[in-house]
Design a protein around this nucleic acid. Structure first.
Length: 493
RNA sequence: GUCUCCUUCGUCUAGUGGUUAGGACACCGGGUUUUCAUCCCGGCAACAGGGGUCCGACUCCCCUAGGAGAUGCCA
């Protein structure tokens, strides 16, 4: 059987981690089997539809490097792939069920349904539609129709018996028909189908072989099977994916932190890291390997290795993966990746000047292993481009030292600064070492005041390299400022 | 409330009747180092509970407990 799978999001919000994980699994499964990956836009909810969300879907998939074989934009033999463009099809099939007595018109108002739900909640009775319109007489129906009353079409769920489906991961999942949602709506008042109708009709005509979707769909699995049976179609193979949870074990949501892929993208996560990490939530290759490129997953992915239990999304581990992938980048690649962040924060001009570009290129080796996110670059490198903001004079003084000693160190460095900047890394360090020996302090005690004077912080990239990047003049200026600060401190007691 | 699914370290997981229950993140120590970071070494830490089946159960079966999801004119 030819593998044909689909990712069918609704453009009502930004693509989030859970959704994209489903997309990835579908995509990898298709690729690993030499099958087709189809994208379908389920835009039947006209209330929540958003153009921005649709664009975000395309942007996100492109950013991740996931290409669909059939779908919007690229087209295909089973199109259109946007449900709103298949409008008539759903009505046709809903009416077919109507004619065959497998569905019925329901004239209940939203108000009535709402009241019903309230009451059920209050009395703690089981929830659901009370099948009020299931047995209207033909006369009643004709009257309401003639009066122009709006209606929906509901599926007539059998009252007796049971329905099951076979799930690749879960095995046989059975439900008693009486436990299935009582007569779900197939076609809404506005003529658009609900998910239940649309997905069954489309999956059938798009010849979908396997449905990989989140486990939140398990309860409607049996209903969908009934619909396939009602139409006389063969249902596809089901595979319900474990859900992605937040730290508290609830379905992952904004409460837990960033959930949309764009957010991660903006913060400076790499697509490689997202793909790799997200794929490891609910899937593992073996006990020793956890680094996979998209291309490798396209070959190695398999349904059998998917876990059944839900998985907690670990932001820390994603960040660690990101750091790993950042360190795999060449300095040239990293420079390009980091540039937008520097521009956005106004660290460099936009467009970058040649001089700035030169500094950015040269600073990358110092920065690379300190980045977890690409956006970390701004705080790390600002001192190279901007005047440093105020720091406490006390910060200049290394541990176990006093202001006088520190002053001596800074003055000593100032006299040698030109020599230091001109020397190469090794020579410069030798100069500092002999300086430390002469002043009878540790190397670190010499470098710390310099570090603070130059970067404004006790935490910085390697200071010798930083000083060389900054140049004699600026370094000297900042040392002088530091000396000033300290002297004032000493004078004021 | 009802139905369905799930249950190995804090987290992601390996494990398919006989293992000192392995790895990774996080955390805690230590080392390298120019602060931080990187890197290296070490440590902590789990089979939810109770019954069976079996010579032998993390692995198979049942029950309990806990968690999650569904119960929409949202998907």
């Amino acid at each position: 059987m030819k593998v044909r799978v689909r990712y069918a999001p609704s453009p009502t919000g930004l693509q989030h981690i859970g959704g994209i994980r489903t997309a990835l699994f579908n995509y990898f499964f298709a690729r690993s089997k030499g099958g087709e990956f189809i994208l379908r836009v389920e835009d039947t909810d006209r209330e929540r539809y958003s153009e921005e969300a649709l664009q975000d879907l395309y942007d996100t998939l492109e950013w991740l490097g996931i290409q669909w074989d059939e779908g919007p934009v690229v087209g295909g033999p089973c199109g259109p792939y946007v449900q709103s463009e298949r409008f008539d099809l759903y009505r046709e099939y809903a009416e077919k069920l109507l004619e065959e007595g497998k569905a019925y018109r329901c004239f209940c108002t939203p108000e009535r349904l709402d009241a019903l739900r309230q009451e059920q909640k209050k009395e703690k009775k089981s929830f659901g539609y009370d099948r009020h319109c299931r047995n209207l007489s033909q006369e009643e129906i004709d009257n309401k129709l003639a009066a122009g009353m709006p209606y929906v079409i509901r599926f007539k769920v059998p009252l007796e018996g049971k329905t099951f489906f076979e799930d690749v991961l879960l095995g046989k999942v059975t439900r008693k028909n009486k436990d299935i949602s009582p007569d779900p709506i197939l076609l809404k008042t506005d003529g658009f189908p609900t998910y239940h109708l649309a997905n069954v009709v489309d999956d059938h005509f798009m010849k979908i072989s396997h449905i990989l979707r989140a486990q939140e769909w398990i309860p409607s699995g049996a209903l969908h099977v009934m619909l396939y049976e009602a139409f006389g179609w063969e249902p596809p193979v089901y595979c319900h994916l474990p859900m992605v949870m937040g730290k508290d074990g609830q379905k992952l949501s904004k409460r837990h932190g960033s959930t949309s892929v764009v957010e991660f993208r903006e913060k400076g996560y790499l697509p490689e890291a997202i793909i790799n990490y997200v794929s490891m939530v609910g899937w593992a290759y073996d006990d020793k390997r956890e680094f996979f490129t998209r291309e490798e997953l396209e070959k190695l992915f398999s349904l059998e290795k998917i876990n059944k239990a839900p998985g907690v999304f670990d932001y820390k581990k994603l960040e660690w993966f990101n750091g790993q992938y950042i360190r795999k980048k060449s300095m040239e690649e990293l420079t390009e990746l980091v540039l937008p962040y520097l521009k956005k924060e106004g660290i460099v001009s936009d467009p970058v000047t040649e001089e700035e570009m030169e500094t950015v290129k040269n600073m990358m080796p110092l920065m690379a292993e300190r980045l977890h996110l690409l956006s970390d670059i701004t705080k790390l490198s600002a001192f190279l481009f901007k005047d440093i903001t105020g720091y406490e004079a006390a910060a200049l003084i290394p541990k176990k030292m006093d202001a006088e000693g520190t002053l001596r160190i800074l003055k000593e460095i100032l006299t040698a600064i030109e020599e230091i900047v001109k020397a190469d890394e090794q020579e410069a360090e030798t100069i500092f070492r002999s300086m430390a020996e002469k002043l009878e302090v540790k190397l670190g005690s010499v470098l710390m005041p310099l570090r603070v004077a130059v970067t404004g912080s006790t935490v910085s990239p390697p200071i010798i390299g930083s000083v060389k990047l900054l140049g004699v003049q600026k370094t000297a200026e900042r040392i002088k400022i530091a000396i000033d600060k300290l002297e004032r401190e000493v004078l004021n007691g």
